[in-house]
Simulated scan of single mutants.
Amino acid sequence: MAYMIRAICNVISQVWLRHRFKKSSTVSRFVARDVRRDVLVLDDAYIGNGYVVARVRTRNILYIARGITTEENFGTPEILHLKSIWDWDGMPWGGASLPRQVIPYIESEQLSDRLQQHFPSAQITVEIMNSEYQSWCMKVAIDGKNLEYVWGPLSGFGVIDLKNRSVENLFAYCDVYLGSMDEAVNFACDCAA
């Protein structure tokens, strides 16, 4: 009986989430007394896995009204976990918005193309690690340097420098977490220099 009730609650929850976070909708909520977060949903296909692809803007309404800050645009596409979408690390009364941990939405083909533009002789191979979550691993060989980029919607985006891997990080997901594709390209450029 308890299993059946739990199953019915899960179905109702999924229907409600799909209705609230449907593609192309903007969902807003105050995360602190003066701070409002707006979420523009770009892709709702993974809502059953607990996340959406969206663009976010977090702004202090009082600061904007008083001219302390200006209106912000939405950020770049990122993975938003539904459990933590409204989390606020700042003061309960609001204040300035703090930087959030962001998992950028990056497709392996986009990164591969950008790296190939910068390094035409680079050897790049991509392997899908989990087809349900579309996580991937990309091995890049640039002039004797071997890098491994990893991306997953649950674990994040990062890079491993296979030649300079330290013993402390041997079993870590990555050596350096990255917040954007530009950071990934800059890391490759720094390693190749």
Rank of each mutant, 00 (worst) to 15 (best):
I64R: 10
I64S: 05
A65S: 02
A65Q: 12
R66E: 06
R66F: 06
R66I: 12
G67E: 15
G67R: 04
E71C: 05
E72P: 01
E72K: 13
N73K: 08
F74Q: 13
F74L: 02
P77K: 11
E78G: 01
I79F: 11
L80M: 14
H81V: 05
K83E: 12
K83G: 02
S84T: 15
W86F: 15
D89M: 09
G90F: 12
M91P: 04
P92L: 03
P92C: 04
W93G: 15
P99C: 10
P99T: 13
P99K: 10
R100F: 03
R100K: 14
Q101A: 10
V102K: 15
Y105A: 00
E107W: 09
E107M: 09
S108C: 07
S108N: 11
S108H: 09
E109N: 12
E109G: 01
L111M: 14
L111Q: 11
S112C: 00
L115S: 01
Q116K: 13
Q117N: 10
Q117H: 03
Q117W: 04
H118R: 07
F119E: 04
P120H: 05
T125W: 06
V126C: 06
V126A: 04
I128F: 04
M129P: 06
N130W: 09
E132K: 03
Y133M: 14
Q134T: 05
S135H: 06
C137P: 03
M138T: 03
K139M: 02
K139F: 02
A141L: 02
A141R: 04
I142H: 05
G144N: 10
G144P: 00
K145C: 07
N146W: 01
L147K: 02
E148P: 06
V150Q: 09
W151G: 02
G152L: 05
P153K: 02
L154C: 10
S155E: 11
S155R: 09
G156P: 00
G156N: 00
F157A: 07
V159D: 05
I160K: 08
I160S: 01
K163I: 10
R165K: 15
